[in-house]
Amino acid sequence: MDISQSFAAAIGLILGGDPAFLAIVGLSLTVTLSAVAIAAFIGLPLGALLALARFPGRGAVIVLVNALMGLPPVVAGLLVFLLLSRSGPLGPLGLLFTPTAMVLAQTLLVLPIVIAITRQLTEDLHGEYREHLASIGLTGRSAIPTLLWDGRFALATAILAGFGRASAEVGAVLIVGGNIAGYTRTMTTAIALETSKGDLPLALGLGIVLILLTLAINAVTYGASRVGARFAG
C-alpha cells in the first residue's frame, strides 16, 4: 500500500466536503466534546475536593482513581452496554446504540483522568496558597473556586488529556454506539470499518484527518492557555 494514496484520500476527504464525512466528523466532535465537558463539570470539583478532603481511605480512593485512568475502553463500553441494554437496568430509556450512550461511555473514560490530574494539580497549588487562603477565611471547601480558577491553565492539560483519550478510543463507542451509518458512526469506528473492508488507504486517510483535528484542538488550547498564563503570571 502506498502512503501517498492515504494522504490523497485525506486531502480528498477534507476538500471534498462530502456531507456523510462531515456528519461523521461532526458526530465525533460532538460526542467527545460533550463527554469531556460533562467529565470536566463533574471531575474538576471532585478532583479539588479529593485534594483538600481528609478522610479514612483517602489514599485508597486516590490509588483507585489513578488506576481507573487505565480503564480499557472496551470495559467502559461493556459496562454502559449492560446498563443500557433493553434487558439491563436502564433499558427502558432506549439509549443503547445512540450518541447519548457514546457520550456516557466516553465520560466514564475521561472522568478518572480529569479527577486524578485535578487532584494532583490542586493539591500542589493548595500547598502554596493554604496559609494565605486560611488567613482570609477560605478554609476547606471554600478554597476550591480559588484553586480551580488559579489552576485553570494547568488544568487545561487535564482536559486535553481527557479529550485525547476520548477522541482516540474506538472500543467503547463501537460497543455502545453500534457504528450505525449516519447515526453513530464516528471517525474511529469508521476507521475500524474501512480497515475491515480492506480499504486501508481510506482508513489511514480518515486517521490522518483525525490526527489533524486533534492537533488543531491541542494547538488552540495550548496557545490560549499560554497567552492566558502570561496574563495571569
Binding site: 469531556v36 465537558a37 460533562i38 439509549l95 445512540t98 450518541p99 450512550a101 490560549a224 497567552v227
Partner: peptide, 28 residues
C-alpha cells in the same frame, strides 16, 4: 482572558451535550 470567556465556552459545551441528549431521547 476572563472568567466570562471560559464560562461561555463551558456553557456552550454543556449545551451541546444537553442537545445531544435531548435529541437522542426523543425517538425513545
Amino acid at each position: 482572558l476572563t472568567k466570562r470567556h471560559l464560562l461561555g465556552a463551558t456553557t456552550a459545551l454543556l449545551a451541546l451535550g444537553a442537545a445531544a441528549l435531548a435529541q437522542d431521547t426523543r425517538p425513545a
